[in-house]
């Protein structure tokens, strides 16, 4: 699980062009949207594509995303349970 969290942090930084951040700047429980990393709706679309491409997870219900993308911890837990690749 720790390796997956590290991988997620690296992918978030790369995919979302968070140029000034390192994986150490993102806590496992940090809020990704709102007051946390301050991600926005375009970032949410990028993360949905990332789940599909990297882990074979297709999010069909947009409401699911709110919980899944709360933090690196919630993302890692969902991926571990639902990944197909």
């Amino acid at each position: 699980m720790d390796a997956l969290k590290q991988e997620l942090k690296e992918n978030i930084i790369e995919q979302l062009n968070l140029e000034d951040m390192t994986t150490a700047d993102i806590g496992d429980d940090d809020m990704l949207f709102g007051d946390g990393l301050g991600l926005d709706s375009i970032d949410a679309l990028e993360l949905i594509v990332m789940l599909d491409k990297n882990y074979g997870i297709k999010l069909t219900d947009p409401k699911e995303g709110r919980h899944i993308f709360e933090s690196v911890n919630t993302m890692a837990a969902y991926i571990t349970e639902h990944r197909s690749k």
Binding site: Q15, I42, L45, E46, V49, K53
Partner: peptide, 13 residues
């Protein structure tokens, strides 16, 4: 590269 799948919005916008 992705065979017309997994297109992300940022570079298009």
């Amino acid at each position: 590269d992705n065979n017309e799948e997994y297109l992300t919005p940022t570079p298009f916008i």
